[in-house]
């Protein structure tokens, strides 16, 4: 028989357990969907040329096949780190998953993933596991699910060029067939065809303020820029998306794209974290992320 106490007890316990499950499933419980095989994580030196002949300074790395130069800027009360990357082959631009596993709630700090893949330069990726969208990494399709046709993705093709597309305009398989090797689903696109493509009041996830940012830009052929800005500290306020887009435009980008920012923003170069990653502005510490973009 229905009694107030009996029903309330039963339903209350059920609601509590269900809510706990939803939160654990979203934030805690690791779920592995696919492990990246050893062949897909082959030694980076095979494609990067002879790294034994690399010339390394505090702010640069030069070897056969690649030149990476780190520059620091201060704009809008924000410290910005720019890695200027010149490659002989676009194959040196790669991505990697935390623990070499595609899944949910599987994370590692950027520096650890980078070390495991002998990266010369690395930045955090798009934190794919927190979002729904196309995921293509190193030429392999991991997710073709799309819940938002207006979602802007960044596509890196096998010839090294970049393009910002909208998921509603094409399928992941079509992108793969067109030669896409990397597809990121964070966004929005910052620069398209050399012009700023975000409005001044546009933000990600309703954020309307300055934050640490990560962005990747394509200047020409196999010339790229990896950009990370600090933020949420007294020394570095952070950038709005529009400010970030303007900065990418000033670097000469033909295409530029916003990656996961906030506490995830991390740049790793030559064995060290270059910037000051922070989640709350009180402690400088890397946040664990689900994937990185790196040069090796």
């Amino acid at each position: 028989m229905f009694t107030k106490k009996r029903f309330s007890l039963f339903y209350g316990v059920f609601l509590l357990l269900f809510t706990a499950f939803v939160l654990l499933q979203a934030f805690v419980i690791p779920q592995s969907y696919q492990t990246v095989s050893a062949a897909e994580t082959s030694d980076s030196s095979e494609s990067s040329g002879n790294t034994a002949n690399a010339y390394i300074t505090e702010n640069s790395y030069t070897s056969d096949g690649m030149t990476v130069t780190i520059r620091t800027y201060t704009e809008n009360d924000t410290q910005i780190y720019v890695a200027d990357v010149l490659l002989d082959s676009p194959d040196s631009l790669k991505t990697a998953f935390a623990e070499d596993t595609y899944g949910k709630n599987i994370t590692e700090v950027t520096s650890e993933i980078a070390e495991n893949h002998d990266a010369v330069l690395a930045i955090n990726g798009d934190y794919y596991s927190a979002r729904n969208g196309y995921v293509i990494r190193n030429g392999i399709l991991y997710s073709s699910d799309s819940t938002d046709g207006d979602q802007e993705d960044l596509v890196i093709y096998e010839d090294g060029s970049m393009e910002v597309i909208r998921e509603g305009d094409t399928t992941a398989q079509e992108l793969l067939d067109q030669g896409a090797v990397q597809v990121f689903c964070f966004g929005p696109g910052l620069i398209e065809n050399g012009s700023v493509s975000v409005s001044e009041d546009e933000e990600v996830g309703h954020a309307m303020s300055s934050n640490p940012r990560t962005a990747i830009g394509w200047i020409s052929d196999t010339h790229y820029v990896f950009v990370v800005s600090d933020g949420r500290t007294s020394e570095s306020e952070g950038l709005t998306l529009y400010e970030l887009a303007e900065f990418m435009e000033s670097l000469g980008c033909e295409t530029a794209y916003n990656l996961d920012g906030g506490g995830s923003s991390t740049m790793y170069f030559n064995g060290e974290v270059v910037n000051c990653p922070t989640t709350n502005g009180h402690s400088i510490r890397e946040r664990s992320v689900s994937d990185i973009v790196y040069i090796a």
Binding site: T19, Y127, A130, R131
Partner: peptide
């Protein structure tokens, strides 16, 4: 109320859940 709270938490985090 709990559904709205969880949806807000996921929104702010930048993710979604199939269970909300």
């Amino acid at each position: 109320t709990i559904g709205s709270m969880l949806t807000g938490v996921f929104d702010i985090y930048g993710t979604t859940s199939a269970f909300t």
